[in-house]
Design a protein around this nucleic acid. Structure first.
Lengths: 221, 221
DNA sequence: TTCAACCGACTGACCAGTCGGTTTGCAGGG
DNA sequence: CCCTGCAAACCGACTGGTCAGTCGGTTGAA
């Protein structure tokens, strides 16, 4: 049973997520979070020792959710290439559905400078490790490419595409970019493109992922 | 002949670049730029209407320089694939040599939120257009992949690799990542890897770019 | 003499964090 | 079941520091 205390904490985290994602760290006044949450400044500083720590708590929560989500999606799959594909698809889809997540995680401009860079680095590092594992699996034992660099590069590629979408709305829907991304990734890793579960060519981008039951408006996680 | 006025303006821009890159926009006080430049606050506000505009001027200047540099490097080349490779190499090398440039352009955390996102988007857009052209050339007329998305993805990949290097110092030297990046890019675009001018395989990353006369400590531009 | 260029002390707004105070939940004694 | 006491949770007016931007003043070149 969730205590009153937990509820308050979560309310604050939720509102903070929204507000930080909208204005960025520096352009967010703690008082704004206070107002929108219906709580008081005292409550904020009872639960979090500082604005910075509140922000970091938000980041941590969100990145953990995204990671868990991806892991959950690929868990039932065994084919390494499918796992890689599904991971990419889930990441794009989730980031896309939860703009606040995308803004805070990817549009670094929405975040900040200084000590935060280190934290961001840690978070991205965790994702990179996961991706690296997936890539290694998918490549087989003699890949043409260094998995660590590939993982990073790949993360960057996805990030940039999502950011472009965030800022310009294109492509609409983002899913249109997926076949291209997939083709590129496979090519980049030297994976043959003749897989049964998709018809790879990206020039006539058709939504390629009816897969999975859609959890319509499920909150992230 | 450069007037006194111009000199002051450039001094301010130069110092601003340094300081902004080190602390980020918000953690930089105009007074710090004033001190380090030996000028006065009045001078700053004589040349730039606001802190924000000063920052944007810095961004513009740097991105233009990087772009010109890349254009200059690929100008003498005709083979499209070589042009693409050289562009990538130049970008990585330049970003790597000029950390302030990389920090401001790539580590968005060092920059800011709000109206800046738009400007960043414009700047990245310009690069993307150039990259897109190069990719189109290199692919020939029937590429397997959407050039716009590919350009973006590619930019993201490079960015992330450079950022990792900025923050962790790995790989050391960054150039070690280049063969992998190149292999990935070629694969991603469906370009055959049997080019004469490099031996592609990335597992024994050897510095692959003796090319071009090295302009040892040349200032960017 | 004029004015563009520069100087730097000052101000006004903003805002993170504090702190004395109030409310609420609850343990245990009657 | 009520009362009492106590601490955890919450409140919000206030403070202290920071800093972007201003403005009246100075300088030096033409």
């Amino acid at each position: 049973m969730t205590t009153q205390k937990q509820q308050t904490r979560e309310k604050l985290l939720g509102v903070a997520e929204e507000v930080f994602a909208e204005h960025g760290y520096y352009d967010t006044a703690v008082d704004e979070i206070v107002e929108k949450s219906g709580m008081s400044k005292g409550a904020v500083y009872f639960h979090f020792p500082s604005k910075e720590r509140l922000f970091l708590a938000v980041m941590d929560q969100m990145s953990k959710r995204l990671m868990k989500r991806v892991e959950r999606e690929i868990a039932p799959l065994t084919d390494p290439v499918e796992r890689l594909d599904r991971a990419m698809e889930t990441a794009v889809r989730t980031l896309t559905k939860h703009k606040t997540l995308a803004k805070l995680l990817l549009v670094k401009g929405y975040t900040v400078g200084h000590g935060f860079a280190k934290r961001r680095q840690e978070i991205m590092g965790r994702f990179a490790e996961m991706t690296e594992g997936l890539i290694r699996e998918a490549q087989g034992n003699e890949g043409a490419v260094d998995a660590k660099t590939a993982a990073l590069a790949w993360q960057g590629a996805i990030s940039e595409v999502v950011v472009r979408w965030l800022e310009t709305g294109k492509p609409d829907p983002v899913q249109e970019a997926l076949p291209t991304l997939r083709t590129m990734l496979h090519g980049a890793l030297g994976i043959a493109e003749n897989l049964p579960h998709l018809s790879g060519s990206a020039d006539a981008p058709r939504v390629p992922l009816p897969s999975r039951a859609r959890d319509k408006k499920a909150a992230l996680q």
